[in-house]
Amino acid sequence: MNFCSARPTRASRLGRGAMGAAALFAAVLAGTCIGETPIPVLTVLQTLANKIFGAAHVVDPIDVGIIWNYRLPRAIVAACCGAGLAVSGMVLQSLLRNALADPYLLGISAGASTGAVAVTVAGLGAGAVSMSLGAFIGAVTAFLMVALLARAAGGGVTLRGTGQIVLAGIAGSQLFNALTSFIITKSANAEQARGIMFWLLGNLSGARWPDVWLAVPVAIVGLGACIWYARALDAFSFGAESAASLGVPVRVVQVVLIGLTALVTAVMVSIVGSIGFVGLVIPHAARFLVGVRHGRLGPATALIGAVFLIAADVLSRTIVPGQVLPIGVITALVGAPAFALILVRGRRRS
């Protein structure tokens, strides 16, 4: 690991930004070209040219639909979710100084499951509430409960008590997982339970343009906040008290950032389900690659998360022909060895 690279000049920062944007663009294009069925790259490019530049190539309308309405929005939503979850995980790891923190630590995943199950299995909301909205409401409810519990448990007395937040998160997650099991065993039959499981493991197949218009701004706000608070996050390196003595309004930063990550995660979970691994491991991978300073770490984490999730989604559609695997399976199957490699290499270099 290079602990002391020269401070990047304006030009080299621009260069890195351009490289990142190029990588993201290439990943989205790959996600649009590769899918369940083979469509020639030329057809993909012609379709994109028609749609974006108003060209007039002749393309089969089914192919147009698949490329423009399925694959492209799916790749963009995957990128946003990957970025959003990875950045949320990074922020929580830094704020709580816990390497095992992930975006679901605060009960969000458990709450989303409960919300989804309450709507689909127990029939709450009588059809007026979609599973996504149910998941979002569940996630936010669970997070608010965890936050209140953490506060009541004394997280507010000194700046030393980040442990309470983690413990409150565990308690909240257990409670909501139990609620989910309760609802399923009380009223579900096997076919429904399967649908729920499928969704819980994460599923990008329903991503369409309206999801893009939701996911893109949320991911940008999440990343933007992280960059805005980059120096404050750096200051948490030696703990919350140390951050306070460095002039960081600790409470404000904690409330704003934890609240924001919860919101970003809740939105992503409600769009695609609980995709594991990304929020936990991508930030660590990014730290190995670009170091611990959040000014660089934030954008790098977002970029790696975005590219990783697009790649995982492409694999989930192609690894078993004619069948789509849950993306959560792929993120762990591919991500765990990749992370192991980074760990080993990082150790050798430091």
Partner: peptide, 29 residues
Amino acid sequence: EWPVVGWETIAKANPSMIVIAKMDRRRFP
């Protein structure tokens, strides 16, 4: 018995007809 298959695959296969299930259950839209 009831696999999950993407619309992309189904649309490309372009079946001559589609059979849809009618049920009283209302768990999913």
